[in-house]
């Protein structure tokens, strides 16, 4: 049995520093933690973010949404410090609120309002002037492909259309910090690709934090990746760095239907695909079966490998 490798260390600061412009927005989290009763939602999270897209990955209940709510000031940290452009967001939450666009994972809309009216209402309470709001809303309806539906009531919108309204409202105030939680849930493939492109271009001059379970979204948009598990930051690195860590450890194996279960129990299996010659399985291991062929790793495989090693490390600590 090959001992598990340690999770990858955080990439060095110069590797992650994507922009040294003094005027560029900067978000810093120092040892941030949030406690709910006797459970820590997140703990000891430290991040330094400058313009770019950070892909935030983690399993269900890892603390991603809690971290996003802390960053957007919806929650107050139990410990640690969050600063945006040098201002402590607990002392002055408006430092962030004036500059943040937030798409929560689970949000509602007013079903009696049209998309345009809903965005108009949010623009008004967020301080946009009438003409500015009108122009911005027109642009955002165009951007989110909702122009034809702008005068329809939100109550009749499909899940994907509602999600696009959520994306539009997050961009209403032209924010320097954009925090989006599971933004592509419910979007059809074309809209998903479209939104990824939007995120990529937005990340050129602002801090974008993208939380998702869909690793391919991160792969397509993020220049940095942070992995949370059990409320703790397991890695903050670049996608390339994460991929390097599984280089030469991803294999494809063709097996029969009968063998696939034992293969899955023995190896970390990322995908299985049924073909005429058998089931093609992609596994991540240092010690592959004899007939395995090496393949190029994906970010998803790197992420799964990291999670497994983290779990093994923790169970090892526990022993």
């Amino acid at each position: 049995m090959v001992p598990p490798k340690a999770p990858p260390s955080t990439a060095n600061a110069t590797e992650l520093a994507s922009d040294t412009d003094e005027n560029a927005p900067q978000l810093r989290l120092q040892d941030v933690g949030k406690q709910y009763s006797d459970i820590w939602g997140v703990r000891d999270v430290s991040l330094d973010l400058s313009p770019g897209v950070l892909g935030l990955l983690g399993p269900n209940g890892a603390g991603k949404s809690t971290l996003m709510r802390l960053i957007t000031t919806y929650l107050t940290p139990t410990e640690g410090r969050i600063t945006f452009d040098g201002t402590d967001v607990v002392d002055d939450p408006n430092a962030v609120r004036k500059n943040v666009g937030y798409l929560p994972q689970d949000f509602g809309v007013y079903p009696d309002l049209t998309a345009k009216e809903f965005l108009g209402y949010l623009a008004a309470i967020r301080g946009l002037k009438r003409k500015e709001a009108r122009d911005r809303i027109e642009d955002l309806l165009e951007l989110t492909n909702l122009r034809d539906a702008r005068d329809r009531r939100l109550g009749g919108f499909s899940g994907g259309m509602r999600q696009r309204v959520g994306i539009a409202q997050a961009l209403l105030t032209d924010p320097d910090l954009l925090v989006v939680d599971e933004p592509t849930v419910g979007l059809d493939p074309a809209e998903r690709v479209r939104f990824r492109n939007v995120l990529s271009s937005l990340g050129e001059d602002r801090v974008v934090i993208l939380s998702t379970h869909i690793v391919s979204d991160v792969e397509a948009t993020a220049n940095e990746v942070a992995v949370l598990s059990a409320g703790r930051l397991r890695a903050h690195t670049t996608p390339e760095h994460l991929l390097e860590d599984v280089a030469d450890r991803v294999w494809e194996v063709v097996s029969s239907q009968d063998e696939i279960h034992s293969l899955k129990s023995e190896y970390l299996t990322s995908t299985t695909t049924r073909r005429t010659d058998g089931v093609h399985a992609r596994i991540v291991t240092d010690d592959p079966p004899r007939d395995a062929t090496p393949v190029s790793p994906t970010l998803e495989e790197a992420y799964l490998d990291l999670l497994e090693r983290t779990e093994e490390g923790e169970s090892g600590d526990g022993l």
Partner: peptide, 27 residues
């Protein structure tokens, strides 16, 4: 709208790069 939204037709959709978002300065 709910079952077959016509605006999801990507042929009629502008590309994100074609949409020039006007800046906003909330006050």
């Amino acid at each position: 709208t709910a079952t077959n939204p016509p605006e999801t037709d990507t042929k009629s959709a502008a590309r994100p790069s074609e949409v020039d978002l006007r800046t906003a300065t909330p006050d």
